[in-house]
């Protein structure tokens, strides 16, 4: 048993590693959420939790059911494929109760350049302007109609 005795310190080292390993497994058992890996490499419950969050976007069909007059205008203009809430922001609360929740007024000098400011990375055929040259900071609304912005359409009636 002499060899055993002289290697005693190695067994001590091994037990330090063992204790470390066991502690790690214990921590892992506590810290890894129960539902982890249920469907994939993520927390299964995350789906339920996300589904339970309050809805903030109503969807354009809902808006259109009350604002049919606006749809009339918009569906003829170039913004026909831009959803209401892409500009107005999430308004599910307003759609649920229009009387008490008033949508905030939009500032077109900030809103429109979000999509239309000229940028090399945008497809060439997407309408874009260098706003500083095009309008000099004036709100786009002064010349464009937000729901039907094309100027030719107003002037020539061709669109």
């Amino acid at each position: 048993m002499k060899a055993f005795k002289d290697a005693g310190h190695l067994f001590r080292l091994a037990s330090v590693f063992l204790v470390g390993g066991v502690l790690f497994l214990a921590f892992r058992g506590v810290l890894v959420p129960r539902s982890f890996g249920q469907y994939g490499h993520y927390r299964g419950n995350a789906i339920k939790e996300t589904a339970a969050l309050p809805i903030s976007y109503a969807g354009h069909q809902v808006c259109e059911s009350c604002h049919a007059d606006l749809l009339e205008v918009k569906s003829k203009g170039v913004h026909k494929r831009v959803a209401c809430e892409a500009c107005h922001g999430p308004l599910a609360t307003h759609a649920d109760d229009p009387a008490s929740v008033q949508p905030a007024k939009l500032d077109t000098a900030v809103l429109c350049v979000r999509c239309h400011e000229a940028n090399l990375a945008k497809p060439k055929n997407f309408p874009q302007v260098v706003s500083a040259e095009h309008s000099g900071g004036a709100p786009c609304e002064t010349c464009h109609q937000p729901h039907s912005p094309a100027i030719v359409a107003v002037a020539g009636g061709s669109q």
């Binding site: 002499k2 002289d6 005693g8």
Partner: peptide
């Protein structure tokens, strides 16, 4: 680690 064994072996 509590072991003071530094024998040659």
């Amino acid at each position: 680690l509590g072991s003071t064994n530094i024998s040659e072996r």
